[in-house]
């Protein structure tokens, strides 16, 4: 690991200033992903701005919703009473991720910003357009069983690894950021990017912008929710495919639905068409099967991930079944 400067501001402005003009600087909060990447030389910031002293870890009611501070730990959010009551899907998604230790360390903001687990991104000896623009995509013609089936480009077929973000995109969350040019709100669905020609950019954050909180509007999804994570071992593994499903049911009829997938795209993948289809339909396996088929319309596989074309819809069906079965 290279030498770097370390600063620990106590004021938000100082933190933002520290990054504003310095493209080689990074915020560090939990550090669970950044330190890992620095050890491997994948990221080499010259300055770390430790934001843990900023007062950004509150979880509170705000304007008909929940406001979760960017520095709230994954554990704190997953076990928070308000979260469990209002947004159980988020709690389920958080608990499905990582390990108890990592959830103690990892923050909400950091979780959103974690980098892909693509093998080629992680290994500096391999080509990767995300890590080193122009070097090529190792996965495209390589081992791509973990890779995207939606929204990829010929520059990058990596997937976003966060579980939490899959729930947040389903729940219509908004990301609050503060930067050199002031504060702004970014709808969660617009927070992460598709790779296009610039896969090095994971998100639409601008230089020096700091995530301060996430807002989640209150909704009817307090009961019939399920986060399904399919992985190769029972815990502590990244998803092959995951599904966040939230239903609002009235006598077996779907009043409202939210559906998003993880492990399938460069960003948490919201399934808007399938959601629309579900509304007004009976909550039956047949309905779910049709919704799953709609969800997969644009999916395209590579050499090793064709199984996702089957696992994806099957996981959607199962997640919806599980969500329906609750209560």
């Amino acid at each position: 690991m290279n030498q770097f400067q370390y600063v620990r501001p106590t004021k938000q402005k100082a933190a933002i200033d520290a990054l504003a003009k310095d493209t080689s600087a990074q915020f560090i909060a939990g550090g669970t992903n950044l330190v890992d990447l620095m050890k491997r030389g994948v990221m080499t910031p010259q300055k770390l701005v430790d934001i843990n002293k900023l007062p950004l870890n509150k979880i509170e009611k705000e304007n008909g919703g929940l406001r979760i501070g960017a520095l709230a730990s994954n554990k704190a959010v997953a076990e928070d009473k308000l979260v469990l009551e209002k947004q159980p899907l988020l709690a389920q998604a958080l608990v499905a991720g990582a390990s108890a230790q990592l959830r103690n360390m990892a923050t909400v903001g950091g979780n959103m910003l974690q980098r892909t687990r693509c093998y080629y991104f992680y290994d500096t000896a391999m080509p990767c357009n995300k890590r080193e623009p122009g070097s090529g995509c190792g996965a495209l013609e390589g081992i791509n069983r973990m890779h995207a089936i939606f929204g990829f480009s010929d520059k990058c077929i990596a997937v976003h690894p966060s579980d939490m973000s899959v729930a947040l995109v389903a729940l219509d969350a908004t990301v609050l950021v503060s930067g050199p040019r002031g504060d702004r709100r970014i709808p969660f669905a617009d927070f992460h990017r598709l790779p296009g020609d610039t896969p090095q950019k994971d998100t639409n954050l601008e230089q020096g912008e700091l995530i301060t909180a996430v807002d989640i509007p209150d909704g009817p999804f307090t009961k019939n929710v399920h986060y399904l994570k399919v992985r190769e071992r029972a815990s502590y593994a990244f998803a092959l495919v995951s599904v966040a499903a939230a239903l609002s049911l009235d006598n077996g009829t779907i009043k409202d639905a939210r559906l998003a997938m993880g492990g399938v795209a460069h960003k948490p993948w919201r399934l808007n068409e399938a959601e629309k289809f579900l509304v007004g339909k009976p909550a039956t396996e047949d309905t779910f099967r049709q919704a799953a088929a709609i969800a997969m319309r644009d999916a395209k596989a590579f050499k090793h991930n064709a199984y996702k074309l089957k696992l994806g819809p099957n996981s959607i069906i199962q997640a919806l079944k599980n969500a329906t079965a609750v209560g």
Binding site: V35, Q101, N104
Partner: peptide, 25 residues
Amino acid sequence: YGQCGACTVHVDGERVNSCLRLAVM
């Protein structure tokens, strides 16, 4: 790399992977 848990310690009573913590933090 935070992938095995062998380095688990308690920081202010909470378990963490000490391999991913910068000591200065």
